[in-house]
Design a protein around this nucleic acid. Structure first.
Length: 475
RNA sequence: CGGGGCGUAGCGCAGCCCGGUAGCGCAUCUGCUUUGGGAGCAGAGGGUCGCUGGUUCAAAUCCAGUCGCCCCGACCA
C-alpha cells in the first residue's frame, strides 16, 4: 500500500493533501494561504494553458497583459463589483518608503483596469469587438485556504471582451462556456454540468454568470470555470461608448470569463486514487515512463541498447521518458511514477529481450499487458486514448450514480448529510428560499439549466417552479 | 472570526509530566553487495529545540508573553 497517502475512505481532505505532497505538485509557502507550485504541478498548468490558449486563439481571441496594481478608486466605480470584492482585496498603502497618495489594490480580477483602458481604445463600432485574454495572477484575501482549490494568490486566465450588441455579448458568453465544457470533458476527462448561476451566486457586477460544475469523488460540487455576461455595467461605470453604424453613441456590451489553477484541484479530485495522482493522458506532462530492468552492467547495456532502438521513432508521437537512473531500483521507480500519475508504464528487462515483448501497465486500472516491441509504437497511443476515455466514463458514471431527483425537503436534508451528491429539485426562483436552503443544509444551487423545463412545486415553499435546479454542497 | 492541533536535522516524529551531554525513522553523502513492486550491510555529515523575557548553579523541558502554520466550521473561484 502507498506509504504516506491517507485513504480516501479514511479522510478525504487529508488524502487530497497527501496526493499533492506525494506527487510533488505544490508546497506551502511561508505566507499563510500561499502556495509554491512545484515543477510537477506547474507542468500540468502549462499543459492546460497550452490547450486553452489554442482554443481561445482559434476562436479569435488575443493575449495581452494588464498591470497587477489598480488604483483603489477604479474598483469603486462599479457598485456591485466593489461590494463583492473590496472585503477580499490586498491593498498597497506604501511605496518607496512613502505613504501613497492613492492606495493601490492588488488585482482580485481585472475588469476595472481593463475597462479604464477600453475607454481609450473604443470610439467606433469599427473598434469592436475586442477579444482579449490575459494569463495572470490575482490575489484574494481568503479566510480559509486549500492548496489549488482556494489560495490567496492564484494563476488564471481572464478574458475580457467588448461588443457592439447585447446579442454578441451573450453569444460570446456561451461560446466560452462551451470552450470550458469541451476543455473539462475532453482534456481533463471531467464531466461537467453547464448552466447559469442564481442571483446570489453570480459574479459581482455581472448580468448573468454561467458556470461549469463538476462532481468530486467525495460527491461535493466544484465550480470549475465561469463565463459572465456583464451587460453594460462596466461600460457605464467607465463611460465606454462607441458610435454605431447609425451614428448613435451607445454603451459597449461586455463579457468576462476565467478558469484558474483550481482546475488542478479538480483534476486531482476527479481521478486520483489511494496510490496517488492519476492524470488523463491529454494533460499528463509525461504520458509514458519506461523502466528498464537489469542485473549487472552487461544486462544494463544490452537492455538500454535494445530500448534505444525500440524508442527511436517514439519522439513526437507521445511524451515519454526512459528512467535509466542507476541509483533507484525498479520497485522504487514503479511507485514513484505511480504517485506522479503517469498514465502508462513500460517495463523492459532481460526476460522481455528474449521474448521480444514488454510489459505495459495502466495507471488508471493497474492492468498489465505483454506487448511485442514492434507493436508498442501503435499500441501506446491507442491505450492512451482508451485511458482518456475510461477516466471520463468512470467519472461520468460516478456523477450520474450520485445525482438524484428529490421532491421532499426533509428527505433532501437527510440525504445531503448521508450520501451527498447532486440533487435535482424544484425551486421557486426566489433569493429567500435559496438563502434558507443554504442556511439549513449548507448546500447551494450549483447550476440552473435554463434549456430544461419541467413544471413543479418548490421543494421549500411549494410555490410554482419552472424547472429543476441542481443543488449540492460545494467547495 | 469561532473550535482543535502543531512549531525539536531536509521530511515525519520522540524527548517535556519528573530541569542535568539533543535522540529515532526516512532522506542525504562514502564504500561494497544488489536490481521484475518502495534493497541490505558498514560508516559519515547535518540542530542557535519558532521567538522574547522570567525562574534556576543549570531550561527543548517550568512560568509569562508573542509570532507563525496546519486541520475542522462560517465566507469565497
Amino acid at each position: 500500500m502507498a506509504k504516506g497517502i491517507t485513504k480516501r475512505s479514511e479522510d478525504y481532505s487529508r488524502w487530497y493533501l497527501d496526493v499533492i505532497a506525494a506527487a510533488k505538485l505544490a508546497d506551502y509557502a511561508p505566507v499563510k494561504g500561499c502556495m509554491v507550485i512545484r515543477p510537477n504541478g506547474y507542468a500540468i498548468w502549462e499543459r492546460m494553458q497550452a490547450e486553452l490558449d489554442t482554443m481561445f486563439k482559434e476562436s479569435g481571441h488575443v493575449n495581452a497583459y494588464f498591470p497587477l496594481l489598480i488604483p483603489e478608486s477604479y474598483l469603486k466605480k462599479e457598485a456591485e463589483h466593489v461590494e463583492g470584492f473590496a472585503p477580499e482585496c490586498a491593498v498597497v498603502t506604501q511605496g518607496g518608503g512613502k505613504k501613497l497618495e492613492e492606495r493601490l489594490v492588488i488585482r482580485p480580477t481585472s475588469e476595472t483596469i481593463i475597462w479604464s483602458m477600453y475607454k481609450d481604445w473604443i470610439q467606433s463600432h469599427r473598434d469592436l469587438p475586442i477579444l482579449i485574454n490575459q494569463w495572470a495572477n490575482v490575489v484574494r484575501w481568503e479566510m480559509r485556504t486549500r492548496l489549488f482549490l482556494r489560495t490567496m494568490e492564484f494563476l488564471w486566465q481572464e478574458g475580457h471582451t467588448a461588443h457592439a450588441t447585447a446579442g454578441e455579448a451573450q453569444e460570446e458568453t456561451l461560446r466560452i462556456l462551451e470552450i470550458y465544457r469541451i476543455f473539462a470533458e475532453d482534456f481533463m476527462a471531467m464531466p461537467v454540468l453547464t448552466g447559469v448561476k442564481s442571483e446570489r451566486e453570480k459574479f459581482a457586477g455581472a448580468l448573468q454568470t454561467y458556470a461549469i460544475e463538476a462532481m468530486m469523488q467525495d460527491c461535493k460540487a466544484l465550480q470549475a470555470g465561469t463565463s459572465h455576461n456583464l451587460g453594460q455595467n462596466f461600460a457605464k461605470a467607465f463611460d465606454v461608448k462607441f458610435q454605431s453604424e447609425e451614428g448613435n453613441l451607445e454603451h459597449v456590451w461586455a463579457t468576462s470569463w476565467g478558469v484558474s489553477t483550481r482546475l488542478i484541484g479538480g483534476l486531482i479530485m476527479s481521478h486520483s486514487d489511494d496510490l496517488g495522482l492519476v492524470l488523463p493522458p491529454k494533460l499528463a506532462p509525461l504520458q509514458v515512463v519506461v523502466v528498464p530492468i537489469w542485473r549487472g552492467d552487461d544486462e544494463k547495456s544490452s537492455v538500454l541498447e535494445r530500448l534505444s532502438a525500440i524508442t527511436a521513432d517514439w519522439k513526437g508521437k507521445f511524451r515519454f521518458r526512459i528512467d535509466d537512473r542507476d541509483n533507484y531500483r525498479p520497485g522504487w521507480k514503479f511507485n514513484e511514477w505511480e504517485k506522479q500519475g503517469v498514465p502508462i508504464r513500460i517495463e523492459i528487462g532481460p526476460r522481455d529481450l528474449e521474448s521480444g515483448e514488454a510489459v505495459l501497465v495502466r495507471r488508471d486500472s493497474g492492468e498489465k499487458e505483454r506487448i511485442p516491441h514492434d507493436r508498442l509504437l501503435t499500441e501506446i497511443p491507442t491505450v492512451l486514448q482508451q485511458i482518456q476515455k475510461d477516466l471520463f466514463k468512470r467519472a461520468a458514471d460516478f456523477r450520474d450514480a450520485n445525482t438524484h431527483t428529490c421532491d421532499d425537503y426533509d428527505d433532501l436534508k437527510q440525504r445531503l448529510d448521508e450520501d451527498g451528491g447532486f440533487y435535482r429539485v424544484h425551486w421557486n426562483g426566489k433569493r429567500e428560499s435559496e438563502e434558507r436552503l443554504q442556511n439549513e443544509t449548507k448546500a447551494t444551487i450549483r447550476v440552473i439549466q435554463t434549456e430544461q423545463s419541467e413544471k413543479g412545486s418548490c421543494i421549500l415553499t411549494g410555490e410554482p417552479s419552472e424547472r429543476r435546479v441542481v443543488v449540492a454542497r460545494a467547495y
